[in-house]
Design a protein around this nucleic acid. Structure first.
Lengths: 251, 251
DNA sequence: CGAGTAAGACTCATAGCGAGAAGAACCGGA
DNA sequence: TCCGGTTCTTCTCGCTATGAGTCTTACTCG
């Protein structure tokens, strides 16, 4: 009910102290590998450990807080490299609030999941110097319960590629079917049959639309020029692109 | 990072006051209709309006808080009708924390979604007297942003029936295929082809397993005795049961 | 120039699904 | 007791989607 206890002369300071933070699982693809943004912790607890970027929520929505943290850590100040950040897809993941997850006090953390096209290495800004992209398979032993948050974020990302056109959030505004396939391969961690993927992507209404153009050159290792596409207007893929080796239903 | 600002001599009372609550979207099926548990608000703001059950988080996990609120409002005290509550499926829905969603102070509310077999009308307990089940299509004009939370919960529930065996959470421990079909019909709000549904349910591995028994009598309006099943061990349905008239991909 | 590579179009067999039909079991009312 | 109506359960038919594989063509690199 969001209420009960207090009516008129209520003083917020009478309440048990609970801090609300946001943590961001920011994913991008660099050199064909799925990477997550991590920061190096300087303070206790977990000093020296890596953690997901995050911080306290201010006078803003939870989503704005997540976007602000992401901008701060990547060195992309919201005003400055605005166009870059606008292409970031952000969605709420889950909220983690077990007592004791932070040894200092009760902290309830709202986790967000961000998909971004390849962003620059965040060595620029001062605050961002301690942040960097790490291939997800190397992101272990994170601070707090961030291992769990990352695992949940990865599972969500993998599932979302199945039934939403979110893979296009990892590419530039124009892309080839092959590039799109490599996004799927990087996130799912397995190769896909090129011919079937091609047929599938083009058969799902609204997934991609042709630009009429082709790449200026063939691929680095040969092959013909590929047709270029941009994201279509579908928000849901139907039918979905299901992951192949999901060792069938989980029991 | 869950930290930053404070180190040693930190006083929690220095912080901006943020309250953390849980709200529960509890769904059940009564008389073939999907119903949600609502409470009547007595206090301002939104006095007289209906709202989702919920309250402040104490020294407990968020999930425990949600289950406690649900138990209090339904009159099922956790110790007492324990077996009933154990059959409730509970999962985190989403977190709502827009500034201004509660006019009194900053309230971040973690919403939970609960699926329950037909629970008794909660007229018993004192605290529960103002709670009752309402068909979801009649649950409008709720307090705060609870209309939005309910809508999100319904969409989640409908989606979850597609790829998880959660429909069995609405039935008794043993059920017929027809009863299961009526669960889907109630949640999705549309009739399903009985023959195809039957074939589908039995063909998905681990969805249901036969008890070898049949109902003692035929249906109220006729028809032969139906075979009885219980929930199988699958946690994911593969292939999924897709909703028919989802007017195809959302654009 | 030639080997290797990738794009894209194709075939083929199989699985899944929507729609409909049919038979049998069972109800309640005439 | 008989009968119309209802439900369970199984089947058929046609279409679509999918996995696996082949083939042609266009390109890069050495």
């Amino acid at each position: 009910m969001d209420e009960a206890i207090f009516l008129a002369g209520y003083d917020p300071r009478d309440y048990p102290a609970v801090a609300v933070t946001v943590d961001v699982v920011a994913l991008t693809i660099r050199d064909g590998r799925l990477c997550v943004l991590l920061v190096e912790r300087g303070e206790q607890p977990f000093a020296g450990h890596r953690a997901l970027p995050g911080g306290f929520v201010r006078e803003e929505t939870l989503g704005e807080a997540a976007l602000r943290e992401l901008a701060e850590e990547t060195g992309l100040t919201p005003g400055q490299e605005k166009t870059e950040l606008e292409r970031v897809h952000l969605e709420q993941l889950q909220t983690y609030g077990n007592p004791g997850r932070d040894p200092r006090m009760r902290v309830v953390s709202v986790a967000y999941l961000a998909f971004a096209p390849s962003l620059p290495e965040p060595t620029a800004g001062s605050d961002a110097a301690r942040a960097y992209w790490v291939p997800v398979e190397e992101a272990k032993d994170l601070a707090f319960d961030h291992d769990e948050i990352l695992a949940d974020g990865l599972e969500r990302a993998r599932a979302k590629l199945e039934y939403t056109p979110l893979a296009t959030a990892f590419t530039g505004p124009e892309f080839t079917i092959g590039e799109l396939r490599q996004v799927y391969a990087a996130v799912w961690g397995e190769e896909l049959h090129a011919g079937n993927f091609h047929r599938k992507v083009l058969s799902v209404p609204g997934f991609v639309e042709s630009t009429g153009e082709t790449t200026a050159k063939g691929g680095e290792r040969g092959g013909p020029r590929a047709k270029l596409y941009r994201a279509g207007d579908a928000r849901l893929l139907h039918p979905a692109l299901l992951r192949p080796t999901r060792e069938d239903r989980v029991r």
